[in-house]
C-alpha cells in the first residue's frame, strides 16, 4: 500500500504555547487510522493543519507526494481532502438536503448544475441514513444526526481522505455501532479515513493503526492492541501502577 498522507516533524505554536510539537506519522492509502489522546493533547490542532485551516509553524504536510504548504484552505476539497468539525457547523438556515447539495456542487466533483448535484446528494443521504430527514433544518435534529450530516456533507465532496473529528462523541452505544458500520462502509468505497476519537471501543473496532498524542507530542503508534498494552499509554490514561497500589 502506498502512503497517502505524510506528516514530517510538524509543530504549531500559538504565541508562547506549543500546541503540537514535532509530530510525524503517515497514513496508508485506503486505511483507517485513529488519533487518540486526552483533551488538549493537540489532536484538533493537528487536524486543522492537515485540512489547511492554518499552516504548521514548522514541518511539512505531504499529501500524495505534494507539499500542501502552498494550497489555499478552499482548495483542499478539490484535491480530495474533506473534514468534519468537532464543534458541528451545519448550515443552519439550509435544509439537510441543501447542506449536502452544497458539498456536492463544490468539492472534487465540482458539479455545474444544481439539479445534478441534488441527485448525487440524495444518493449520499441514502447512504448515510439521512434520507427521511432531507427536508428538515439541521437545528431540529438531535446530535447523532447532526454528526451524520457533518459526515454526509464531507462525503458529498467526493474525498479520498476523510478527516473525522470526534464524530462519535456523545453517541450512545447503539448509535456508536451504527456510526462504526457507516465508517466501514465509507472505507469500503476506497476512502482513507483519519479520525480523532475518545470512544476506545470505536477505535479498537475500526482502526488498523492508532497514534497516541499527549501534551502535543506523539508518544506511540501501533495497532490498537499494541497501543493499549503500552505501559506509557496505560500510565497516562490510568496512572502509574505502583501509585495506585501504594
Amino acid at each position: 500500500m502506498a502512503t497517502l498522507l505524510e506528516l514530517n516533524n510538524i509543530s504549531k505554536s500559538f504565541k508562547g504555547l506549543k500546541a503540537v510539537n514535532d509530530v510525524s506519522f503517515s497514513v496508508e492509502e485506503k486505511s483507517i487510522t485513529g488519533i487518540i489522546g486526552s483533551n488538549g493533547a493537540g489532536k484538533t490542532t493537528l487536524f486543522n493543519m492537515i485540512s489547511g485551516v492554518f499552516p504548521p509553524t514548522e514541518g511539512t504536510v505531504i499529501y500524495k507526494g505534494k507539499d500542501l504548504a502552498s494550497v489555499k484552505p478552499y482548495q483542499y476539497s478539490s484535491i480530495g481532502i474533506a473534514r468534519t468539525f468537532q464543534i458541528m457547523k451545519p448550515l443552519k438556515h439550509m435544509t439537510v438536503m441543501e447542506n449536502v447539495t452544497s458539498g456536492a456542487l463544490f468539492g472534487r466533483r465540482n458539479i455545474k448544475s444544481a439539479k445534478e448535484a441534488e441527485e448525487y446528494a440524495l444518493e449520499i443521504l441514502n447512504f448515510t441514513g439521512l434520507y427521511e430527514r432531507r427536508d428538515v433544518l439541521p437545528g431540529s435534529m438531535g446530535t447523532p444526526f447532526k454528526k451524520r450530516l457533518e459526515v454526509a456533507r464531507a462525503l458529498a465532496t467526493d474525498p479520498e481522505l476523510l478527516l473525522l473529528d470526534e464524530v462519535m462523541a456523545g453517541l450512545n452505544p447503539t448509535e456508536t455501532d451504527d456510526a462504526i458500520e457507516l465508517f466501514r462502509k465509507i472505507n469500503e468505497r476506497g476512502i482513507t479515513i483519519l479520525l480523532i476519537e475518545h470512544v476506545m471501543r470505536a477505535v479498537a473496532n475500526l482502526c488498523e493503526t492508532v497514534v497516541v498524542m499527549h501534551h502535543g507530542e506523539k508518544i506511540t503508534e501501533g495497532t490498537p492492541e499494541q497501543v493499549m498494552n503500552d505501559p506509557y499509554v496505560i500510565e497516562i490514561y490510568l496512572g502509574k501502577e505502583d501509585e495506585t497500589d501504594g
Binding site: Y76, S77, A82, K89, H93, S102, L105, G107, A117, R153
Partner: peptide, 23 residues
Amino acid sequence: SKLGYGLKTVREDEGTANAIGIS
C-alpha cells in the same frame, strides 16, 4: 443555482465553505 448555494454556504459558515471548496 450553484452560485446561490455558494453564497448561502458562505453566509452560514465560512469554515464550512472552505472545507467544501468554496472560496
